[in-house]
Amino acid sequence: MTEHPLVEMIDIEKHFGGVRAVEHVSLDLWPGEVVGVLGHNGAGKSCLMRILSGAMIPNGGEIRVGGQPVQFTEPNDARAVGIETIYQTLALADHLDAPKNLFLGRELKTRFGNLDDARMLEEAREVLARLNPNFKNLRDPVSSLSGGQRQVIAIARAIYFDTKILIMDEPTAALGPSETAMVADLIRQLRAEGIGIFLVSHDMHDVFDLCDRVVVMNKGRIVGAHAIEEVSKDDVLSLIVKGELPADWSARNLEAAQ
């Protein structure tokens, strides 16, 4: 067991004018762990994840990666320490093809500093084939690809580089059943490799299928953090909707423990 968690977020705060989006939130993630982050729209979960991915700067609190305090002022800072994010919008540049998107912001270059498009194409072909053997449209602009193919590019981009922490924001929301199963397999495989994953999802089935822990946010605060065995779907729903566990939860849990 590692000494430190992969990442610790300590007492994170973020407000927009008078609106408190994230209030005194502390959260950690260990190697090979999948943590589900749940909550209503506007509960603060996306905001918290954007802070961790460097896309948003918090007003207070500290982030530690491998025990070391870090400051993220732009997404590249987070990526530099191995935090990759798959955004719900996928964050793809529509007019560019798959290899150009995969390496966007981290382009491979030749000795003379020119773009090495031939090598990027080869690398992209390889990593995309691993995720989806049918992926052939490597030279088409990604706007012409299907939702599943676009998702594959976004995933490939997040795992191609030396990833330690993966944030997945609604990774299966736009996918069909077979593609969803592919993503689920991938999450299990990454967990086995020791990567820590934050899974932001609305899909209760996915959460209970894949997560080791669930963290529920409500009005900018964490209202519950539980190992997945401790809670039922109804318990989690109650946390999401009411911000608290059902009254009979602790009694039931004691019973189950005995």
Partner: peptide
Amino acid sequence: GSNEEAARLSGV
């Protein structure tokens, strides 16, 4: 020009 937000999130 293609997608400013995506480019920003990609580290551009």
